[in-house]
């Protein structure tokens, strides 16, 4: 029961969704499955947050290395959760002025909005922006023209980097009209809509076949990896 029932559930759900794409009468079944799917997706966030809470509590109680940072994570988590779930600082809206709880949880001026705007946003945006530094360092140390294929990659990168700036179009000023295709911006457009398009299309078709075969394996019960290895 521990392993057979999940396989039956996965197969039944998957086939209902496939059938609903072909038979209009069963469209409602597909819609119901998707509504449940969305709710479970939301529950996954709750599960993820709860897991984080458990792991950090464990780390603090064991006094493991870096437990102080775990405590910071825990405080940040609990404060955000509290102000978000209890809508701290949220004002009633014009639509429902007598219902304090009806206003959006992330309303401008609320505590959650403040945490998002002044902590979450700069932290996440800066974390992603750090890659600009590391990509520069990696380009200096690892981007080598070791063989003809690497030269092709480098040359394309050079043209695209030039073509996606103001300098890329400057060459047009000096080239005769029939040779304008030699400017970096024109070459970039050509590379993107011909070579890149062809390469990416081959990759897309390959991935589509991969997704289809993996899905079939799951639905037919051949791939059971999602059940885990243990019995419990």
């Amino acid at each position: 029961m521990k392993r057979t029932v999940p396989i039956v559930i996965a197969a039944a759900t998957g086939f209902v969704l496939i059938v609903s794409s072909f038979i209009p009468l069963t469209e409602e079944w597909g819609s119901a499955a998707m509504q449940w799917f969305n709710i479970l997706a939301a529950i996954a966030f709750v599960l993820g947050g709860s897991n984080l809470l458990r792991m950090n509590l464990q780390k603090i109680s064991d006094r493991r290395l870096g437990w102080g940072y775990a405590a910071v994570t825990l405080v940040a988590f609990l404060v955000t959760l509290f102000v978000g779930l209890f809508k701290v600082g949220v004002q009633p809206t014009e639509s429902f002025p007598t219902y304090a709880w009806a206003a959006p949880y992330n309303q401008e001026g609320s505590f959650l909005w403040w945490l998002f705007e002044y902590m979450y946003k700069p932290l996440q945006a800066t974390m992603f922006s750090l890659l600009a530094f590391f990509i520069a360092s990696a380009a200096f140390r690892a981007f080598r023209a070791k063989n003809p294929e690497a030269i092709a990659l480098l040359a394309t990168a050079f043209i695209v980097l030039m073509g996606r700036t103001y300098v890329g179009g400057l060459m047009r000023e000096f080239l005769p009209e029939r040779l304008e295709w030699l400017s970096f911006d024109a070459m970039t457009n050509y590379i993107m809509s011909v070579f890149n398009l062809a390469g990416m299309r081959a990759i897309t078709i390959g991935i589509a076949l991969g997704v289809a075969s993996t899905s079939l394996k799951v639905l037919l019960g051949v791939d059971r990896s999602y059940l885990g290895a243990g019995d419990d």
Binding site: E27, G30, S31, M34, Q35, F37, N38, I39, A41, A42, F45, T93, E94, S95, F96, Y99, A102, A103, P104
Partner: peptide, 29 residues
Amino acid sequence: LGYRPGYEGPIKLAVTDLRKTIAADVDGK
């Protein structure tokens, strides 16, 4: 209309029956 969890799930519902994924706007209307 705000945020809807479910990754591609809300798209599948929005193309068939919008109200099954979004019943109200962000202000609850």
